[in-house]
Amino acid sequence: MNLNLHIWRQKNKDTKGKMVSYQVNDINEEMSFLEMLDVLNEDLLRKGDDPVAFDHDCREGICGACSMVINGRPHGPTRTTTCQLHMRFFNSGDNVYIEPWRAGSFPVLKDLTVDRSAFDRIIQAGGFVSVNTGSAPDANEIPIGKEIADEAFNSATCIGCGACVAACKNASASLFVSAKISQLAMLPQGAAERKRRAESMIAQMDAEGFGACTNTGACAAECPKSIDLANIAQMNREFIGAKLTSELV
């Protein structure tokens, strides 16, 4: 198939970008979207042009690197990561618009690559449990109910790709932060730092400049890992509880 691509090109953080059109021909429908971009880049390199920069790593849907908004939807028309999106979802002659995640907290570094360190700083603020070093604890040493383990695991499947921020009209990071807070809040290992975690991670989320949550559900609808919107309510619950009872003034 042949496609008309319209791709956001931006030299670096400090320059203004713009949409640039490219034509790609003879794309196989079994290719992934990233492989299609590889074809474009090889073509650009042969012509001596600058290839399109985009983040990618595992290419098996578990790392969350391949961030791009395709035709107005993060990761494109299917609820997968971009690397798992295949060209059979497109038709020959289609116009395909490709842009980076748009959020003030995710500055564009080059073309489709954005800086997602804001997420790292939120995790550093409290998205962890403190444990003693030394030999690893025995498995199943702490009994955890199956239902709770499942719920916590569902929240833990968040890969931190940032599609929730990209999809949100307010560029809110609520789904990401809530998945991380909920996961640890449900488990006994997370209990010791529960209040401090909620307060610090939410404070960091605000400091990074993410927007507020309107509960439109756009994030959960785009999440490649199907993180549930109920996580956000749990985050709010943790926040209210921590603010009313924690020792931090």
Partner: peptide, 8 residues
């Protein structure tokens, strides 16, 4: 976004 977001 240059190409408007299309919510699910």
């Amino acid at each position: 976004y240059a190409y408007e977001l299309k919510p699910a």
